[in-house]
Design a protein around this nucleic acid. Structure first.
Length: 309
DNA sequence: GCCTTCGGCAAGTATTCGGA
DNA sequence: TCCGAATACTTGCCGAAGGC
């Protein structure tokens, strides 16, 4: 198996794009809808603050999707909102791959009542999919463990049928305390958005190479950039879902999907272009795209025409 | 003169390297 | 194999520069 089926829905949640503009306008116009969401979010925030105040060294947090305006003060936000790191994005990729491998071995179990899937993994398996060579030191193990823990203490907001869900996407149940951290089996449950591929809907997933994290590590040294990792996934999605060899992204769309508003917030505008450039350079380096041309769309806005390999 | 933007700095984070 | 140091890169912040 060379490629995994990556659920499009998960990618949307990762990049804060889980609500369409139609849904966003519904939140703004439909008071009932808005109230339901606000109540859920408020409840989650209270819970997070509570947990953080009485915590065991863990930091709990929430991801707020784009377009959903909610009255949360900056002071509260700084306490509860923590953006996804590139490492966490890579963990998502690894977990999707492992869930799929478990499914192929009939070792993935769907728990209907909580709409989650259960399976078991080892740190060695996660390591391999993170692209880190086996037999590395304790420090690397701690790093992966830390990201896993950070992911499970992070709540995401999304939609399941007519229901709002505010919940972690990945949860680890029963961490092994054995000395051999590498081959201890970790009991994991993931939300249903991890296994959308099980349904027969067309284009609810796209193909992503199993060794994508390894390739990304090879071409980019040092601390990884979350925007670059997200763009690469979106480009794989575009390639999978399109019959033509080129695809166009407007500048503002890239700012959205790459979550570049963090630079706008700090007025670091040059970093936006730099991040986009680095994203394309990375995609070229992993042989995903051939070249990118800059052009203008019908609204005279900057757009990028991407030629796939 | 005020506001926006830039660029540099320090702190934080991930990775590699090399000595014990 | 482990651990700290060095390296590479990101991020947040703040003051200086520039435009209106």
């Amino acid at each position: 198996m060379k490629k995994m089926n990556y659920p499009s829905r998960l990618l949307k949640i990762e990049s804060g794009q889980q609500f369409s503009s139609d849904q966003v306008s519904l939140f703004e116009s439909d008071t009932n809808y808005k109230k339901t969401l606000a109540e859920k979010v408020d409840k989650a925030i209270t819970q997070i603050i509570d947990l953080n105040e009485n915590s065991d060294g863990m930091t709990y947090s929430i991801e707020l999707p784009k377009g959903i305006s909610h009255n949360i003060g900056d002071e509260i936000k700084s306490k509860v909102v923590k953006e996804l790191t590139a490492y966490e994005v890579r963990i998502f990729t690894s977990i999707v791959a492992l869930a799929q491998l478990a499914k192929a071995r009939s070792e993935l179990f769907y728990l209907e009542k909580i709409n989650r899937a259960y399976f078991e993994v080892t740190l060695t398996q996660i390591f391999k999919l993170m692209g880190i060579a086996a037999g590395r030191g304790k420090k690397d193990g701690d790093l992966v463990k830390k990201s896993l823990l950070s992911l499970q203490s992070k709540k995401f907001i999304y939609h399941e049928d007519e229901q709002f869900i505010v919940s972690p996407l990945v949860q680890i149940h029963g961490y092994g305390t054995e000395k051999n951290i590498w081959d201890t089996s970790l009991k994991i449950t993931v939300d249903s958005c991890f296994f959308d591929f099980a349904k027969s809907k067309k284009h609810t997933y796209f193909l992503l190479p199993f060794d994508i994290n390894k390739r990304l590590r090879e071409v980019n040294k040092g601390r990884p950039n979350v925007s670059v990792e997200l763009l690469v996934k979106y480009l794989y999605q575009s390639k999978h879902c399109s019959n033509v060899s080129t695809v166009e992204y407007s500048h503002s769309r890239l700012v959205d999907i790459m979550n570049l508003s963090r630079y706008i917030k700090n007025k670091n505008y040059p970093r936006i272009k730099a991040a986009i450039k680095k994203g394309f350079e990375t995609a070229k380096a992993i042989d995903l795209i051939e070249k990118v041309e800059e052009s203008k769309n019908m609204f005279d806005e900057l757009k990028y025409v991407i030629h796939f390999k």
